[in-house]
Simulated assay, not measured.
Amino acid sequence: MKTFLILAIFALVASAYALEESERVNGENGWYVPQEDGSFEWVDMDVAEEWMEAQEKLEGRGLTTVPVNFYLYTPKNPSSSKHIYATTKSISKSNFNPAHPTRFVIHGWTQSYSASMNKDICSAWLSRGDYNVIVVDWARARSVDYATSVMAVGATGKKVAKMINFLKDNHGLNLNDVYVIGHSLGAHVAGYAGKNTNGQVHTIVGLDPALPLFSYNKPNKRLNSDDAWYVESIQTNGGTLGFLKPIGKGAFYPNGGKTQPGCGLDLTGACSHGRSTTYYAEAVKQDNFGTIKCGDYEAAVSKECGSTYSSVRMGADTNAYMVDGDFYVPVNSKAPFGMIN
C-alpha cells in the first residue's frame, strides 16, 4: 500500500512540473512510460529517480515482498514443468541434473511463466540436447502499473541469484554452464541476478532490455556487460520500449534495432519488442541469423555497416569466446526470420 501511495504522490508531481514535449528525449531526461492500455505517459528523470530511491528504502526496511517461483523443464519432462524450491528435498525429487548445462528464462512486464516466449525458448534449448531449463515466474511483473513492476526488478534478481547460489553450493551447478536469459524487464532481472551470484555466471542474454525508468548512465541499476562473463543483447525496439544504446558486450541490432519488418505500424512498439524473443528462440534452434560487424551502434541503427557478413551468428553459443562490439542483423518479415541457411 505504501508503494502505491508513493507512486500516486510522485505522479502528481510529475504531471505538475513535467518538461515540455519539445524538450523531452526518451531515456535521456525522462521516459515515456508504458500504460496498460498501450499508451505512454511522460515522467521526468529526476521524478522517476525519486521513485526508485523511495522503493529502495522500503526494501531496506523489509516492507516489500516479491513472490518468485521456479519451474524446471528437462528432457525427461519437456512439456510438463516441475515446480522447484531452494530446498534439497525439492531439487532431489526433480529431474535437475548438474551434469547438464542450465538455462534460466525470465519474462517481462504483464507476463507469467506460461508466456509463449518461455515455451519457445525452452523448446528451442531442449531441441539441442540435454539441458535444465528453469523458467522464472515473478508475480509483480503482472502489476498493471509498469513502475511497480520496475521497482520489483532488483529484489526479483536477488531471488534468482539465491536459487543459482543454492544449486551451486548444494547440488553441483557449474556457473560456467549457466545462461540467464531475460526479456524486457526480465533482462534487468537477469542483470541483478548476475550482480548477486557467488561467482560469475557464464552468459546473460538480454532480449530487448527495457528502457522506461532505466538509465544508461547508471549501469549498476540495469543489465550491463559486467554482469556475466559474457553479456549479449538483442535490441529490437530501441528508443521506445527497449534501449537503443548497446547493452551487451555483443550488441545485435536486427533491422537496425528500432522497428521490425512484418510488424506494420506498431505504434506501441509491442510487436517489435516481442520479436527479440522470437528471434532468439529461432537462433538457438536454427543458428540462422547472419550478422554484419559495425564500427559503432549508430552505424548499426542507420544500417551503414556495409554488406559483408561476419563469422558471427546472433545468439550462437560460440559468441562468448569471440564477440565484442555492435552488429547489424538483416531479418525477414516472417519466419524463418534469419537469412542464413
Rank of each mutant, 00 (worst) to 15 (best):
I6Q: 05
K245N: 13
L167M: 14
S215M: 06
R275S: 07
T88M: 08
T88Y: 05
L213M: 15
K303I: 15
P75Y: 08
N176I: 03
A299R: 02
L19F: 08
K89T: 15
H107M: 06
G157E: 00
G238M: 05
D208C: 11
H107D: 04
Y113V: 11
S302F: 11
S94H: 02
F214G: 01
T318E: 15
V323K: 01
I204K: 02
V205N: 02
I6C: 05
H171E: 13
A281Y: 02
Y253F: 04
D324V: 11
P219S: 01
L211W: 00
S310L: 06
F337Y: 14
D266E: 08
G242M: 07
A86S: 15
F10S: 07
S112I: 06
K57Y: 13
E56L: 02
A14F: 05
T308Y: 06
G27V: 08
G315R: 05
G290D: 08
D169M: 14
L126P: 00
H202R: 15
G250S: 04
L5H: 12
K119R: 10
A155Y: 03
K195R: 11
K245T: 15
C294F: 11
S79W: 12
N341W: 10
K159M: 05
Q286T: 14
A18F: 08
V105C: 01
Y113R: 13
G186M: 03
D326A: 11
E298M: 13
S302L: 14
G194N: 03
I340K: 15
L5S: 08
A190H: 02
V160C: 04
M45P: 05
E41A: 09
Y321A: 14
M52C: 11
V153T: 04
V180M: 07
Q35L: 10
L207H: 00
S112R: 10
